[in-house]
Nucleic acid binder design. Structure first.
Lengths: 131, 131
DNA sequence: GCATATGTACTAAGTTTTTAGATGATAAAT
DNA sequence: ATTTATCATCTAAAAACTTAGTACATATGC
C-alpha cells in the first residue's frame, strides 16, 4: 500500500534502522539490525517490515543477492544530516542556522573540548572564505 | 485518554502550535492559532484538540479566564531547543554536538558576522566556566 | 428575549507508526 | 531425505497522529 504523502523525514525507529544501514554501507535486514544500538529487542520480521516501508518511502533501495535482499541507502547520512539541520533551523530557530549554533554553544552540557573543536571549525571556515 | 508512553518530543503539528504559543507567551486557542505561520487552514476544533493533547503530554498548562482556557507553556522554547539539539546530536551525529556544527558550517552560508557572533559566545562561555 | 458567536468536551474517522505472527519458499545440516 | 534455519511476503493489531464534527454552555448584539 502506497502512502498518501510520502514524508521527507524519518520516524525515530526508521532512523535507528537507517543508522544501522549507514554503518554497514549495504546489508541485509539481519546485518542492519546487528549494527544498531540494540537497546530494544525486536523480532526479525519487525525489522523486515521497517525496511520494506523505508523502501516504499524511497529512503533505501533493495537488490536480491541469492535469497536475501540487500538494502542500500538512497540518501546518504550526510545528506540527511543537512536536511535535518535545515528542518530544525526552519521549524525551531526562525530559519536562522546561526541561532541554532548559538543555542548549542549556550548549552551547559558543552565541554571545553567541544568548544575548542567548534572554534577550530570556525577558524577553518573563515580561512577558506577569506583566503 | 492518557497516553501509554508520554513522549519527550513534539510532533510537527504540535510544534506548529507550540511556536504559536511561544510567540504570544500565553493565550487562548484562537490567539495561538492567529500567531502561527498559517499556511494550513485548520478548523478551530482541531486546534482545541491539539492543545488538549499538548496539555495531556505536559507541554502546556491551562487556566480558565472567564469562559476561555488560557494556555501557558510548561517548557520554554529555549529549553525545547536545547532538548532537540541534544536529541539530534545523539541520534544523528554520534552524540557529538561538534559534529553537528561541523555539518552546519560545512554547507550553510554562515556570514563572517555570524561567525564572529558565535565566537564571542564561545568566549563568554569559556570565561564563565574557567575564570 | 432570541439569534449569533465563542468556548469546552466528547466522539470519531482516516492515516501512520510500530510490532510481530503466519505462511511458504529455499538453503543448510545431519 | 528429512529436519532446521533463514528469508520474503502477507496480514494484522495496538497505539499515536491529525483532523474535525456534534453537542452543549455561555456570553453578546440587536
Amino acid at each position: 500500500m502506497a502512502r498518501k504523502h510520502d514524508p521527507d523525514f524519518l520516524t525515530s525507529v526508521e532512523l535507528e534502522f537507517m543508522n544501522g544501514l549507514w554503518a554497514v554501507g549495504s546489508g541485509t535486514v539481519r546485518e542492519i539490525m546487528a549494527n544498531m544500538d540494540a537497546e530494544v529487542d525486536r523480532a526479525y520480521t519487525s525489522g523486515a517490515t521497517v525496511m520494506r516501508i523505508l523502501e516504499q518511502k524511497g529512503f533505501v533501495a533493495s537488490d536480491k543477492k541469492d535469497r536475501a535482499l540487500v538494502y542500500t541507502p538512497v540518501l546518504s547520512k550526510n545528506e540527511y544530516q543537512g536536511r535535518s539541520i535545515r528542518q530544525m533551523s526552519k521549524s525551531l530557530f526562525d530559519g536562522a542556522p546561526g541561532a541554532l549554533v548559538a543555542r548549542l554553544v549556550d548549552d551547559e552540557m558543552l565541554t571545553d573540548e567541544m568548544i575548542e573543536q567548534i572554534r577550530s571549525l570556525l577558524d577553518d571556515k573563515q580561512e577558506k572564505s577569506n583566503g
